[in-house]
Design a protein around this nucleic acid. Structure first.
Lengths: 207, 207
DNA sequence: ACTACTTTGTGAATCAATTCACAAGCCTCG
DNA sequence: CGAGGCTTGTGAATTGATTCACAAAGTAGT
């Protein structure tokens, strides 16, 4: 099938969030134009984005909030439960362990991993901190789909390779480095430093 | 002048990070091809990105690590000190207050703000938590350039408007919503939920 | 100083994403 | 049930980003 652009997928996430808001407010239909206004884009863009996956609206009327919501959740893969392992039980790892957005969206945190003997065996918001040495064996047994990488920059690439070799195909990376994924592994990086630099760039005069 | 694409600015950040690594390792020159390999792009892309801002290399030799680093820091606006106010002293706000990357890159956190009387007056890693009511007056007096928005989703747009009206033109948003900035205010959003959905999308078969 | 080899900087060409524009379909109301 | 009014879905056109390809300019070795 046709490759879908990252930017399209991001917009689908945005649309879904609005649909959920509309659902709460009891609205039943919504037009591409309303979605566009809230999402900072154009109605043509909304319709084009959706058109990659099918035809969800009714001409003259718009989209059913409930149906489009269901379809988007389906498309984005939010219809099932995903098992997540957190690598690194430091500050970011700890913050993530208590992040409620995970459960709300159907993610289950299976375990956290660390190499610090002080931390191993303890729990983080009810999540077991395990020895990184047993990571591969655990993955083989519990087959999680997603790994969250929350370790220092210098180890990130090495551990990503390990995650990938263990068979996990999706990684959310919080280390502020560009990582190189082998083969069919998808990596998404959350990098605050880069966003900040985007801001200072915008604030700086470039003549 | 010509508008620079977001993607270009993000890559400049990446290049800068590598240059700093190279600098530490004592390397003096680097080619566009090496930068490209590390940054997951092509050498033509690297050269094109840089060409928007000038001509920094020597044909047949490459780029001086030190000089290109200085130029990139200049371009990205990292040459000066930026004053930051954190809005919201909750979990994310607290995590940001102790984030060391801020100082390392020349950002100074002036203060944090909250509306919870329990928190106002306390400090967060040495940073004063002030009453949100005094925000506008403080901005007028201390003129920070950047605001970090770390408050619940439902209040985010309202507070962004307030920030913008107070005269701050750059906002780093951690609330998982699409915000609409008025006029010349730049907003960058760090949204983990969206990245996660990008992963589940990738993991899901789309036939 | 000449030759062989590198690597930059950049127009031109290609590839990708967004916007335009409109026929087709559905709803409402008289 | 037919006319008028919306709104979708989608090819075509446009705009934007990336890649190609090569002249120009430098280095190194002899």
């Amino acid at each position: 099938m046709k490759r879908i652009a990252d930017s399209t997928v991001r917009r689908l996430s945005i649309y879904l969030r609005f649909l959920e808001e509309f659902e709460e407010r009891g609205l039943t239909t919504v037009s591409s134009d309303e979605l566009a206004r809230r999402g900072g884009t154009t109605s043509a863009q909304v319709r084009k984005d959706l058109s990659f996956f099918g035809s969800f609206g009714k001409r003259g009327l718009g989209y059913s909030v409930a149906e489009l919501g269901t379809s988007l959740r389906e498309i984005l893969g939010l219809g099932k439960e995903w098992r997540v392992m957190i690598i690194g039980a430091g500050k970011i790892g700890a913050a993530l362990a208590q992040y409620r957005g995970f459960r709300q969206r159907g993610f289950v945190i299976v375990a956290a991993y660390d190499i610090n003997p002080e931390k191993i065996g303890r729990t983080l918001e009810g999540i077991e901190i395990r020895d990184m040495q047993q990571f591969e064996a655990d993955v083989a047994r519990e087959h999680p789909e997603i790994a969250v990488l929350a370790i220092p920059t210098e180890d990130a690439q090495k551990v990503l390779d390990r995650i990938s070799r263990a068979g996990i195909r999706a990684v959310l990376n919080f280390a502020p480095v560009q990582l190189h994924a082998s083969g069919d592994t998808t990596v998404k990086t959350v990098n605050m430093a880069m966003e900040l630099e985007g801001l200072t760039f915008a604030l700086t005069n470039h003549d």
